[in-house]
Simulated assay, not measured.
Amino acid sequence: MKKISYNLIIIAFLCIFGCCKKENNNQTQKGNMENIQVSGYGVTAKGDTVKKYTLINKNGMKVEVINFGGIITSLTAPDKNGKYEDVVLGFTKPEDYFNGNPYYFGALIGRYGNRIANAKFTLEGKTYDIDKNDGPNSLHGGKDGFHTKFWHIESVKDAEFPTLKLTYTSEDGEEGYPGKLTTTVLYTLTDDNALEISYEATTDKATVVNLTQHSYFNLSGNFTKTITDHELQINADQFLPVNETLIPTGEQKAVKGSPFDFTVSKPIGKDINAADDQLKKGKGYDHNWILNGTGLRSIAKVYHPESGRVMEVFTDEPGVQFYSGNFLDGKFETKTGGKNEFRTGFCLETQHFPDSPNQASFPSTELKPGQKYQTKTIYKFSVKK
Score class of each variant (00 low, 15 high):
95 E>P: 01
96 D>F: 02
96 D>A: 02
96 D>Y: 05
96 D>M: 02
96 D>I: 00
97 Y>Q: 01
97 Y>G: 07
97 Y>L: 04
97 Y>W: 05
97 Y>K: 00
97 Y>D: 04
97 Y>P: 04
98 F>M: 05
98 F>I: 03
99 N>Y: 07
100 G>P: 10
101 N>V: 01
101 N>H: 03
101 N>S: 09
101 N>T: 08
101 N>W: 05
102 P>G: 11
102 P>K: 15
103 Y>F: 13
103 Y>M: 11
104 Y>G: 05
104 Y>F: 15
104 Y>L: 15
104 Y>Q: 14
104 Y>S: 15
105 F>N: 01
105 F>E: 10
106 G>N: 05
106 G>A: 13
106 G>P: 11
106 G>I: 12
107 A>C: 14
107 A>G: 14
107 A>F: 02
107 A>Y: 01
108 L>S: 05
108 L>D: 13
108 L>Q: 07
108 L>C: 07
109 I>V: 15
109 I>Y: 00
109 I>M: 11
110 G>C: 12
110 G>N: 10
110 G>M: 10
111 R>I: 10
111 R>N: 02
111 R>M: 03
111 R>K: 08
112 Y>V: 13
112 Y>K: 00
112 Y>T: 03
113 G>V: 02
113 G>F: 00
113 G>W: 00
114 N>S: 15
115 R>G: 08
115 R>C: 04
115 R>T: 03
115 R>I: 06
116 I>L: 14
116 I>R: 10
117 A>M: 05
117 A>N: 12
118 N>A: 10
118 N>M: 07
119 A>N: 03
120 K>N: 14
120 K>E: 15
120 K>W: 04
120 K>F: 00
120 K>Y: 04
121 F>M: 13
121 F>L: 11
121 F>A: 08
122 T>H: 07
122 T>L: 01
122 T>G: 06
123 L>N: 09
123 L>M: 09
124 E>N: 14
124 E>S: 13
124 E>G: 03
125 G>V: 08
126 K>R: 13
126 K>T: 15
126 K>L: 03
127 T>F: 07
128 Y>T: 07
128 Y>H: 13
128 Y>M: 07
128 Y>W: 12
129 D>N: 15
130 I>N: 03
130 I>A: 11
130 I>Q: 11
130 I>R: 05
130 I>P: 02
130 I>V: 13
131 D>K: 10
131 D>S: 15
131 D>F: 05
131 D>Q: 09
131 D>M: 07
